[in-house]
Design a binder for these strands. Structure first.
Lengths: 262, 262
DNA sequence: CGGATGTTTGAGTAATATCAACTGTGGTGG
DNA sequence: CCACCACAGTTGATATTACTCAAACATCCG
């Protein structure tokens, strides 16, 4: 019923041919949506909605689970806003587009993050969300969110916090872009990722980047060559160990020091 | 959520003595707060609360009017979050602080803007708000906002839009910082200002900057000398006319062209 | 009027982008 | 299964942009 709004014809990713994209997003939800098999039972971590603690709330909130393949577009800039999306597994990037066609990776999103809130203001998404690997997301229709928030004051407050946190996060990205040099940007990107993986119960020392050097560069306001050179340099300096997209943090103190250095 | 990393104990503003700050903010509200004399009767434009249309709503929302002198701090990073603030007249900057003491101007705020929402997430402000000239702000206690939103669904929705709009705005600042060169940043800063003045009924062609070259530079991720040189160059190229802080836009098309140019 | 703060401009430097060549790598089709 | 192809990543040489340091000048307030 609700799925219609989430079906997109997926165009070629980045203007070229797309290897992995599917024409239609598949709704893999069952009659009763369940996240018991989810890697994080508490999928909606920011909203603190746990299926076991509050199954009823949960059922009312989540309308569908959508499976995405690498390169699939969850929503694009200009799409009508209808829902927020909680990432169940996998990862997504959100991309902002400029008037003249260039683009920037605005965010790199991991499981248990909720994306799409930038679209509420004008009922239109201002950025695009793309799966970086095969992923699953929960669709949280905004009218349901509104209704729940109206009934449940605690939920309402968590919703405000969700928004506020997004503002603060965007602000700290702007701070990074406005004040740091290339090596500092990459270092804080890596430490931020490590911390977020840690919170989610994954290794905060070793992880696989799901973005290309170009995408990382775009996110950090750098060119891909600069990112590549920095990875190499960090590797030589024994701050990290890189082999392609597999990164191992060797010297966090050193990385933090790098960021603090004026 | 990663906001915890952005909470700081606030040092003195810019490390030195503050000339204009007052130890205590003066509440200039009268028994019944009134904005009839306000330059914008609809002070809470983003929330669409008009004193004449909805005097009762208005009275319940605004607890106090605060007068600020140039340099006064409205809230600082680390302060407990209790309220949002609507700018009645004057202007403010919001400033983000890094761990190592450096800072960035996160926003330049004009009348009818509402600031402070970044503090909701952790009940603590993550940035600092400083008056750029003698100004007046309305204090909107957040518990009152919550109560009103709970009662009035339309108001609630406007509140969501307010937050969402803040996210989108921060995102476009990040886009600016991540993708544009110095001249493009300054051009879009000027055009954005012009547009915002226009919406508020002021001249969109000629206005007075309330920030120093250094503050503008900080906001745009540039050094003050770079900003100064660009102003001079834009002046020579007849794109604008600058005399100190008074700016007159002469060739908007030219400025837009500059931004679009790769 | 005078000091402090803010602004402009110049010369030299450091950081990052650009251009270019080359290397790995994973998926596809022969 | 292997060869190939497209794409991703690395590395070098050079160009460009913006920063740094420095000096002079302007402006605002007290």
């Amino acid at each position: 019923m609700q799925t219609a709004t989430h079906i997109h014809v997926v165009p070629p990713f980045r203007g070229g041919t797309v290897k992995f994209s599917q024409p239609v997003l598949r709704d893999v939800s069952r009659p009763t949506v369940s996240c018991l098999g989810c890697s994080l039972r508490k999928i909606c971590m920011p909203l603190d909605v746990d299926e076991l603690d509050a199954p009823e709330l949960f059922g009312r909130l989540v309308s569908a689970r959508v499976r995405l393949r690498k390169g699939d577009v969850l929503f694009r800039a200009g799409d009508r806003f209808t829902a927020l999306y909680g990432i169940r597994m996998g990862s997504c990037k959100t991309v902002m587009l400029t008037d003249d066609g260039s683009e920037q990776v605005a965010g790199y999103h991991l499981p248990a993050e909720i994306i799409g809130a930038e679209g509420i203001a004008n009922d239109v998404h201002v950025s695009q969300a793309v799966a970086l690997e095969d992923s699953e997301v929960c669709t949280l229709p905004f009218d349901r969110i509104e209704a729940l928030a109206h009934e449940d004051v605690a939920f309402q407050r968590r919703l405000y916090r969700l928004f506020s946190d997004a503002i603060a996060r965007e602000r700290s990205i702007a701070l990074m872009l406005g004040t740091m040099r290339a090596e500092q940007r990459l270092a804080s990107f890596l430490l931020d990722l490590a911390q977020r993986y840690h919170v989610r119960g994954y290794s905060s020392t070793e992880f696989v980047l799901r973005m290309t050097r170009e995408e990382i560069g775009s996110h950090l306001g750098l060119k891909l060559e600069t990112v590549s050179r920095l990875f190499s340099r960090f590797d030589v300096e024994r701050l990290i160990q890189v082999r392609g997209r597999v990164v191992k943090l060797l010297d966090r103190i050193g990385l933090q020091h790098l960021i603090a250095a004026s």
